[in-house]
């Protein structure tokens, strides 16, 4: 499975990656948070973004999600240059971000959360039936089946179920790129399993997924590609099969590797 994926990735790129970032710079006052970052996020692949604290993972994510505006550099969406100026712009393109705090309202039920801000309305009133049907379809297609009822308040869900609802909310809107910030942090073993399976299902549906994580076990489990940020620079990005635990730690802590035969420092 892993080697198949690698083979596909190594084939000459005939199509543009879904999202292509070139020479992206971002600074806050005198602090250079990102410097000449190049990153590709292809469809149907899970790209893991790693890096130590302060490496610039969050800043890069927020530049993609439209929260921050990059100072320099270009972003190409399906091959066309774009400027993502707000979260609205991002979701219009098909970019959805699942933040670590999930942004769910505890007092609302699953359907209400999934449609929050984009409710369907008929004759001026909420069209609950059609929203409930659509939410049920999305959850079923992602095989999120452990919830007892999609009308139960989110407060009554477990951490893994909440993560699943947040992801389902993100993919409901024909999104093409889903960015997940630490999706397995603070989850138990079984719940982590559920979320990782869910990420794989998103990939199998042809979505581009970017996962930010500190958990290297999870990364090796789920990622097709790995990109490492080191002090605001992209140290490396390549197929996951080119990395092992030691090289990735080296890249995260020193920005390079002492070993030969490791992944290319400049991505294809």
């Amino acid at each position: 499975m892993q080697s198949d994926m690698a083979a596909v990735a190594n084939a000459p790129a005939t199509t543009e990656p879904l999202l292509k970032i070139r020479e992206l710079d971002k600074h806050f006052g005198p602090v250079q948070a990102l410097y000449h970052v190049d990153l590709d996020l292809p469809s149907g692949k899970v790209t893991a973004l790693c890096g130590d604290n302060g490496a610039g993972k969050s800043v890069l994510t927020k530049c993609i999600a439209g929260i921050y505006q990059p100072d320099h550099g270009q972003v190409f969406w399906e091959g066309h240059p774009v400027h993502v100026r707000s979260a609205r712009d991002a979701s219009r393109l098909g970019i959805e971000t699942v933040y670590q705090d999930l942004a769910l309202a505890d007092n609302l039920d699953i359907v209400q959360n999934m449609f929050l801000g984009r409710e369907r309305v008929r004759l001026g009133l909420l069209d609950e039936d059609s929203m409930e049907r659509a939410a049920a379809e999305t959850l079923a297609s992602l095989r999120v089946t452990t919830v007892r009822s999609i009308r139960q308040p989110v407060a009554s869900l477990s951490g893994g179920q909440r993560q699943s609802v947040a992801v389902a909310k993100a993919v409901m809107w024909n999104s093409k790129l889903v960015i997940m910030d630490e999706p397995t942090a603070a989850l138990g073993v079984v719940q982590t399993r559920q979320v990782l399976d869910l990420i794989k299902r998103l990939r199998d549906r042809g979505l581009a997924v970017m996962v930010i994580s500190h958990n290297l076990t999870d990364i090796f489990e789920v990622a097709d590609r790995i990109a490492v940020l080191y002090l605001g620079r992209l140290a490396v990005q390549d197929d996951a099969s080119k990395f092992d635990l030691q090289t990735i730690v080296e890249y995260m802590t020193t920005g390079g590797t002492s070993r030969t035969g490791g992944p290319n420092t400049k991505a294809s």
């Binding site: 452990t146 139960q152 951490g159």
Partner: peptide, 28 residues
């Protein structure tokens, strides 16, 4: 919705607490 065989039950959810928060008309 049917439970897929490979889908493990969510062992970490606190069943008592979850039941307490479920509106009865939703599950009954």
């Amino acid at each position: 919705m049917t439970v897929q065989p490979e889908e493990l039950p969510d062992l970490t959810a606190a069943p008592e607490a979850a039941r307490a928060e479920l509106p009865p008309e939703v599950v009954a």
